[in-house]
Every structure is written in C-alpha cells, then in structure tokens.
C-alpha cells in the first residue's frame, strides 16, 4: 500500500472553511484517511463523507494523511481537538500497529463512533494448482509444511494476519511471501508466482468468475454477499475467521452528546438503502453498528490478533 502518492482533499475544502455552523455542533468536519487516495479506505471514506455531510448539514473535507504505514493519519486523528469536528476511518492495520511499531497510536487514544463493516479474508488458489477444495489445500499443507507459497501483505498487514490466523487455527505452515498491497499480490497469483493468496473477496472475485483463480473459502461467519456460492471455512469444518474491518473513530474525549449525534448520523447513513446500493456495488460489506457494539467488535479483533502477533514474533510493544 506504500503508493507513491498522495494526499487529497475535496474541492469542498475551500467552501468548508467559510461554511456556516448550520446544524452539527459548530461548523465543518475534517475526515482523516490514513491511506493514499484511491484505496479502499479512501473510497469508502469519500462515500460516507458525502452522505454524512447531507445528513448533518455541514461540509466534510476528506484529507489523506498517508505515510508510515497509516500511522501518520492515526496520529493526526488522535492529536486533533476532541470536539467531534475531526473524525476518520480506522482499519485492522491500526489495531495491529499498536503492538508492532515504535511510537504507535493506542486504541484508548481514540473514541469509536460506529462500525462500518468487515472485509473478510478469503483463501484463493491459482488456477494452475491442484487444490480443488479447502480439504486438498489443508492436506497438502500438512504433508509438506512451508512448501505452499502464499501471497500476502508484509508482516503486520491484514492479509498477512489472515494467513497467520489460518496457520495457527489449523496447525499448518505455509510460506508467507509479502507483496506491498493487494494489487501486486493478485498479480502474482494470476501470474502463478504464488499458489495461494489471503486477500479479501472483492479483489479476486472477477478472476474467480473468469476461472483464472479459485476461491476455496471465505474466512467469515457468513458467506460474502458478492459470492453467495462460495462456502465459508466454518461450513467446511474449519474454524477460521479473519480479515480486515473498517470503523469510524475520532480522538478520545469527544463530549458525549456530540459523539452521540455523530454515531447516530453515521449509523443512519450506513443503514440507508441508497448508501448500501452504492457500497455493495463497489464491493464493500456494510454492517452498521453503534458506538458501544463497534467498540466491542474492535476489542474482539484486538483479543484475537494479539496472540497471533506474539506467535509470529512481531510484538515489539507488549501489552
């Protein structure tokens, strides 16, 4: 994901500066995206921001603070005035970074406002491989440990963690080869450089339909809405749940009433059929949850991922 560019902003930004405090407590909102323009975090943010702006009646300027693997944006967010006028998108990588980076932003420096949705991992194999089913794959991996080459993020990235969870839940070992982002991973899978990949479903769906790759299973509690014919790991008898997620957060210390307004508005936007139609078309799973439930979901992920990181020897910042 370390793309060479860049930060961006809505043309609204200019207007935002002069906007009147119409309804939401007092003036425009800045929405922090901690990845460069064009990625999933950015696209989803702009989509939500657009509708949230209508809902609250104030301008929302989306700003990309990329760099340091997402840490720059998180720091910007955590250090902003906790008045509810700076909010942003949080992903799984920021939870992981709490334990793997120098000077991280910890979850308790942030206030969770709502859950956006999960982006479950999936296990996909290249068309040229002999693995027709998940059973084949697991059997082969057990027979010859560390032989199957899997494409994923560098250690600490979401699809690396998915692969690690796959390994630790099923007692396998695979050769986890890192690529910088989903696009190069999928390219390597298509070119046959890696045999399998643990990227989310939307990244490989098109190639699955075309017969170039096979999605063997989805690492989620339920099937992916874009691929209702592909069974989950659970259904095939393997207890593996893993993947990325998205949530909306602000700096810790936002006044309760302001946080409640934001949280309610977000849930309303995320639940609207209009938004769901757009987001689903773009491949994003939506699961609107209020602040308390969202916090719980994030804590669950936190509990799940810490032992995996510890096992992989990635923890430099122990709890």
């Amino acid at each position: 994901m370390r793309l060479k560019s860049i930060a961006a902003a809505l043309a609204l930004a200019g207007a935002a500066t002069f906007a009147h405090a119409d309804s939401f407590p007092g003036g425009p909102i800045t929405w922090v995206v901690n990845w460069p323009a064009g990625g999933g975090q950015d696209t989803t943010s702009r989509l939500v921001a657009e509708m949230l702006s209508e809902k609250l009646g104030v301008a929302i300027a989306v700003k990309n603070y990329s760099g340091a693997g997402g840490l720059t944006g998180m720091r910007e967010l955590a250090s902003a005035d906790p008045d509810g006028h700076t909010i942003g998108m949080l992903g799984a990588s920021s939870i992981i970074q709490q334990y793997t980076t120098d000077e991280p932003v910890m979850l308790d420096e942030l206030a969770v406002l709502s859950f956006f949705g999960p982006d479950p991992g999936a296990l996909t194999v290249a068309g040229g491989t002999p693995y027709e089913s998940l059973d084949d794959y697991v059997m082969a991996a057990k027979e010859s440990p560390s032989e199957i080459i899997n494409g994923n993020d560098p250690p600490g990235g979401a699809s690396y963690i998915s692969a690690s969870i796959l390994e630790s839940s099923l007692g396998l070992e695979i050769n986890k080869v890192p690529y910088s982002g989903y696009a190069p991973t999928v390219t390597a899978l298509l070119g046959g450089e890696v045999e399998s990949a643990t990227v989310p479903v939307p990244q490989v769906l098109e190639h699955h339909a075309n017969g170039d790759v096979r999605i063997l299973g989805v690492m989620a509690g339920q099937r992916h809405f874009l691929a209702p014919d592909i069974p989950t790991f659970m259904e095939q008898g393997y207890d593996v749940v893993a993947g990325d997620f998205r949530a909306v957060v602000g700096p810790a210390g936002i006044p309760e009433d302001v946080a409640a307004i934001l949280s309610e508005a977000l849930v309303a936007v995320l639940s609207s059929p209009e938004f769901n139609a757009k987001a689903n078309a773009a491949g994003y799973m939506i699961e609107p949850l209020g602040a308390a439930e969202a916090k719980m979901r994030i804590m669950q992920f936190d509990e799940q991922v810490y032992p995996v990181l510890e096992q992989a020897g990635l923890v430099t910042n122990p709890r």
């Binding site: 370390r2 990329s66 340091a68 693997g69 840490l71 720059t72 980076t101 120098d102 560098p154 990235g157």
Partner: peptide, 18 residues
C-alpha cells in the same frame, strides 16, 4: 522493510517509518 516490516534507520521515530 517491505519484506519483513523491520524498521531501518528510523532512529526510533514514527515519522521515518514510512
């Protein structure tokens, strides 16, 4: 580092990690 995610010459700062 793109392969192992180990920081190099970052002098313990967050800014240089990217």
């Amino acid at each position: 580092d793109a392969i192992t995610d180990v920081p190099r010459f970052t002098f313990g700062t967050a800014e240089l990690q990217g």
